[in-house]
Design a protein around this nucleic acid. Structure first.
Lengths: 245, 245
DNA sequence: AACATATAGTCTTATAGAGGACTATATGTT
DNA sequence: AACATATAGTCCTCTATAAGACTATATGTT
């Protein structure tokens, strides 16, 4: 359409055309215009809509694919990518049994005043109430990860209506199905600590043995913080591989 | 030239043209045809040489840039990228004082029979002799990393002619200048362990305190293993950030 | 010697078009 | 109902061309 074309060319910064188109499309995805796993308009359609050439569209899409926002399937279309990083655990922990998802046991679930929390993560949930969950992840009968999860109540109130059994081992799909909240990306920070009494009891290890601590802030497409969690895992199970170039 | 063009089109796999060109160029870089920081032929030249269009060359180069093999400088040329990952420490350790390189102290340097080594890394140096160095890295007067480095003697014999002072805080430039060995990439694996007596003494920490262990295998462009090292660092200084998508 | 200016060479952006490859759906046949 | 085949729609490869932007060097001027 001419309206969209005008809109694009109006953002008359010094950025090249494909970069402007990329930013425009990012905003449309962030605004939730297309649901995850849904096809966005075809390259040729976009080219027409915005009044640019096919190559320019392709270059914009290419970057968004690299960023992990989109996903292309030849012959089928270009799709909003659904983040699936519960597998991130496998990057960090050496877990026997390939591919399968470790079991979860929810130990606690409560609504708390956010401002009462020990260290409110980044002031995210300032003011309001928060849902707090404690969860244990285990491989078979062996616990290897203790999690402390914090969610802003107003967005995730629906969670409290479910039984803990209904929550299942993967939370992010539940967030989406029950609360309509979609996790787009996350920032993780790893450090090493020693197990305090609580952690030692949960992980069945001696007090003072080393644990890896993972703090994760999960964000929506538009950058608002949706979930914070701190996980403590047995350091003996920890392993991480990197390729450096 | 026609010879090169023929060579490219002869590799008549089912791979697209740009992928074949990419592989051919990879081999030329790996063969050391262009030194690091040296410009390779211009895009237009390559297009002519191989008898393909400019767009095809650009797509091939693009991938090599993404892989970290090449580097483009507008107006100037396309260059073989020099791997500079001594900064990888900063990804893993929270070091006060931004940017500066931590000091090094070489504690030991000797030639050993490779087959005598406790766990010959990947059987790399099988048979021959090896250079073994022990090094301590410190921030000011604070030691934070103890390194055990292994090199195949036949390639790195020249190192034994230098004083340990001449080695300096960065080894890879020395490898290149003195021995002509260029590190292209590396594989690292991180685990958590507890300090044994030797490590505790070096790092000035109690025996049994948690340490992060980094095992690195550094490789040449053609994939031959050039250096293996195991570093142990104070876990209290360890921190690693990731963005997940 | 210092500074401005031109110039050649390089990568970058953008366009247009043609044919191929792949996928999902519709259609027809058995 | 099951299976093959056609078809439309999508992304993918490759070509060709033109003008812009940036860098380094050469040249000229002061």
């Amino acid at each position: 359409m001419t309206s969209e074309a005008a809109l694009l060319h109006a953002t008359d910064s010094r950025l090249p055309l494909y970069a402007r188109l990329r930013d425009v499309l990012t905003r449309r995805v962030a605004a939730g215009e297309w649901a995850p796993d849904r096809a966005i308009p075809a390259e040729s359609t976009l080219a027409d809509s915005y009044g640019v050439s096919l190559g320019t569209v392709r270059k914009a899409l290419e970057q968004l694919v690299d960023e992990g926002l989109l996903e292309r399937r030849q012959g089928s279309g270009t799709f909003v990518r659904r983040a699936r990083f519960d597998q991130s655990l496998f990057r960090f922990f050496r877990l026997s049994g390939g591919g399968a998802i470790p079991a979860s046991r929810i130990l606690r679930r409560e609504v708390v005043d956010a401002w009462r929390l020990p260290a409110t993560p980044l002031g995210v949930m300032a003011g309001g109430k928060a849902i707090r969950m404690q969860r244990l992840r285990l491989w078979g009968d062996e616990p290897f990860l203790a999690e402390d999860i914090l969610l802003p109540f107003e967005r995730f109130a629906g969670l409290m209506d479910l039984t803990t059994d209904e929550l299942g081992p993967l939370l992010y799909p539940v967030y989406e199905a029950v609360c309509g909240q979609i996790i787009a990306r996350a920032e993780e920070e790893l450090t090493v600590a020693v197990a305090d009494e609580a952690a030692a009891r949960l992980l069945r290890c001696p007090v003072g043995s080393p644990v890896v601590r993972i703090e994760r802030l999960a964000l929506a497409h538009d950058g608002t913080a949706l979930e914070w969690r701190r996980s403590s895992g047995l350091a003996s199970q920890f392993r991480y591989k990197v390729d450096i170039k």
